[in-house]
Amino acid sequence: MTVRGEYLGMPLVINDLQHEYREFFGYCAKHDLHLQNCDDCKLFRYPPTTACPFCASPKATWKPVEGKGTLYSYGEVHHAIQPVFRQYSPYMLLLVELDTQKGKPGEYDGLRFTGNLAKPDGDLAPPELVRSVGIGTRLRIVYKDAGDGISMPLWTIDETATQPAKPWRYAIE
């Protein structure tokens, strides 16, 4: 069955052929991060795929993954393109590297999530919060419910983690 949701006023749709996406967002709807784990090489991958990017095996099992990581890089949108995002500018385009599988299979590889910076309740971060985050900031996953069978994963500052004294930010504020 087609999953339909709505997030920030945007209609979301996962049709019934997209099994991998339905599974991923279905776990998100339970506020539970799961990724495909290869039955053969045992590596996780993100985003969901139809075979293993590392060994081409078609067999995988959805397994729980801890939603914690470090900001690996980012962009900060001041000129929004999609009309719905104009009211949230500036917003951060995060690339979050999970602690799980960091540096695997290659030294510079990892599970890197795209996403936005949010408050702990999943609402997009206000400008002062955006300015406090940079490369090195420790983040944890949060979810914003978007409908039956779909929630959007987002990232917030991990209050329990040791944070860098000064996360790396672009030279000009």
Binding site: Y7, M10, P11, L12, V13, I14, N15, Q18, Y21, F25, P47, Y72, S73, Y74, G75, E76, V77, A80, I81, Q82, V84, F85, Y88, Y91, L93, L95, T114, G115, N116, M152
Partner: peptide, 22 residues
């Protein structure tokens, strides 16, 4: 927003600049 867009456009990640900035 559907398909691969669930990992990009849903986050306001759509233009070339937004895709390359990281």
């Amino acid at each position: 927003v559907g398909g691969d867009g669930l990992f990009t456009r849903s986050y306001g990640l759509s233009s070339a600049g937004q895709m390359f900035c990281q």
